[in-house]
Simulated scan of single mutants.
Amino acid sequence: MTRLPGVILAGGRATRMGGGDKGLRSVAGRRLLDRVIDRLSPQCDPLAINANGEPARFADYGLPVLPDSLPDYPGPLAGVLAGLDWAADLGAAAIVTVAADTPFFPVDLVVRLQAAAGPSGLALAASRDETGKLWQHPTFGLWPVALRDDLRAALEGGLRKIVLWTERHGAGTAEFASDPFDPFFNINTPEDIATAEGLLA
Rank of each mutant, 00 (worst) to 15 (best):
W135S: 10
E156N: 12
D101E: 15
D179F: 01
P67L: 11
E175F: 00
P55A: 13
H169E: 00
L9D: 00
A126Y: 12
L164M: 01
S178I: 07
D34I: 09
E54A: 11
D85W: 08
G12D: 00
S26D: 03
L24K: 12
R168F: 06
E197D: 08
A100D: 15
D38A: 15
L200T: 01
R152H: 14
R39P: 00
V145G: 06
I193V: 15
D129R: 06
T195V: 15
P183E: 13
A201Y: 03
C44Y: 11
V110I: 12
A92E: 04
L155E: 13
F185I: 03
G118P: 11
A123P: 05
T15D: 07
D21R: 06
P46E: 12
G83H: 04
T195S: 13
P74A: 05
T2K: 09
G170S: 11
P71D: 11
I95Q: 00
M1D: 08
A94P: 10
G141H: 02
E191W: 04
G75C: 05
V163N: 14
S26H: 05
A153C: 02
F140S: 02
S120P: 00
P103M: 11
N52Q: 05
L4Y: 13
K133L: 08
A154W: 04
E130I: 03
G118S: 13
A14D: 14
V98K: 14
E191L: 11
S26V: 11
R160M: 06
G23E: 05
T15N: 07
L142M: 03
V98A: 14
P55R: 09
A82R: 05
R35G: 02
D149K: 09
A93N: 01
G121D: 03
G141T: 04
P55G: 13
D108V: 10
G29Q: 01
C44M: 10
T97M: 08
A14Q: 11
L33W: 06
L63S: 10
A88K: 12
G62I: 07
D108H: 13
G53L: 09
P138L: 02
D149I: 03
E156R: 15
V163F: 02
P71W: 10
E156I: 12
A87L: 09
P46F: 12
A125E: 10
A171Q: 01
G18E: 02
E156W: 10
K22F: 00
R35P: 04
I95Y: 02
V107Y: 00
G62T: 10
P183R: 12
T2W: 02
V80T: 12
L84N: 05
A194W: 04
G198F: 10
L63H: 09
S26M: 05
F140D: 01
A99C: 14
R160I: 09
R160G: 07
A201E: 14
R57W: 11
